[in-house]
Write a protein that binds this DNA or RNA. Structure first.
Lengths: 190, 190
DNA sequence: TTGTTTTATTAAACCAGTTTAATTTTTTTG
DNA sequence: CAAAAAAATTAAACTGGTTTAATAAAACAA
């Protein structure tokens, strides 16, 4: 369900044709193959990424040397390591395409200039960030409230498209479960 | 360590004396006694709260009928149920003063008008929200990575002021531990 | 300064979810 | 298509943290 960045802007603020020309100066459009890396551990997160189509995941290598997924982004979602991006510090994360993906890239400097030249975008990003906070507050509430079994079924019922598009072990990782436990749950509830 | 709202704005954007006059039209300053409620379960979160001095906590009543704390705010922090605030929906949370607190209140309608009249504040809130997201990404990483014992000691070492100001059972609740387990940890490491 | 309420401690029984290690199934690739 | 790599399953032993229930200590209010 592809979505263009400008359409997404237009859901929240008014964008003129002149604005679109400016925007196009400061963004890049890339396609990434399955498993291609957008960011690697040790690099600075130089860009914000907007998924027009596809799926990205963010993960780090934990103390057991396994990949711990902390975020996904599907069509119409933003992804970045904000901690690294904001202060241009080294990131501890990888960002990788889960499937072939069309991505809009805004680099740090371009982002700053773009916000000056198209000031409505300050409002757009303020609203988007606010929604991200609301979503993460809700997610934390579920984490406090639910057992891991409930958390798993709540997720797959709420986001059935993930089950279609993302391998089970990645969902397990994102939800903080072992893949073995997910197998056990699926067997139990066939 | 009191901090005024306008000083906080000024850390991120330029605020003129004229702006300050406008701001003062749209904000309210309140003091709350210990245990006084700013928001109650079932009400709409009508305002954003900025703590100039003191401490607020946000919690809900969980399925075991006990208070589950999900957030604190100390001097210089914002607090709101963004989910309820943004769409003016009923909240499931309580917000309560942990100690006597000086709070700046911005109501939903005032917030919208204020952002129009002092447009730099779009930028301020965009940056603040971005920082909140970065902080919550970091918190999630710790949640994935650490055992509950590590999580507890990491928190008390990172935020020693909380241990001074907030009862131990509230910290336990916020960290998702039972108070009994915190006692056990403290005994073990005397 | 005493009685009441709130907060913290103790200890034993318990269990939800992990670990380990092996096997099977599915997907990818040359 | 066959071989290799990636993903999913199975089952048993194990453990970090919870539950329960009772007591003790600290803080607060009259």
């Amino acid at each position: 369900m592809q979505i263009s960045l400008v359409d997404h802007f237009s859901r929240y603020v008014t964008i003129s044709d002149a604005d679109i020309e400016i925007i196009n100066k400061y963004i890049k459009r890339n396609t990434f193959n399955k498993k291609e890396e957008l960011l690697r551990n040790g690099q600075v997160c130089k860009s914000l990424y907007f998924v027009e189509q596809g799926c990205l995941r963010m993960f780090y290598i934990n103390s057991k040397s396994t990949e711990q997924i902390t975020q996904f982004a599907l069509d119409g979602w933003w992804m970045a390591d904000f901690f690294s991006f904001m202060d241009q510090l080294e990131s501890e994360y990888f960002i990788q395409a889960v499937e072939a993906s069309k991505v809009v890239t805004i680099e740090f400097q371009s982002f700053e200039v773009l916000l000056k030249e198209v000031p409505q975008l300050e409002r757009y990003f303020r609203i988007i960030m606010q929604k991200k906070i609301a979503a993460s507050q809700l997610r934390m509430k579920y984490l406090y409230e639910m057992s891991k079994e409930e958390f798993y079924y709540h997720f797959v019922n709420s986001f059935p498209e993930f089950v279609q598009r993302v391998p089970q072990y990645m969902i397990a990782s994102y939800l903080g479960l072992t893949p073995e436990y997910v197998s056990e749950l699926r067997k139990k509830n066939q």
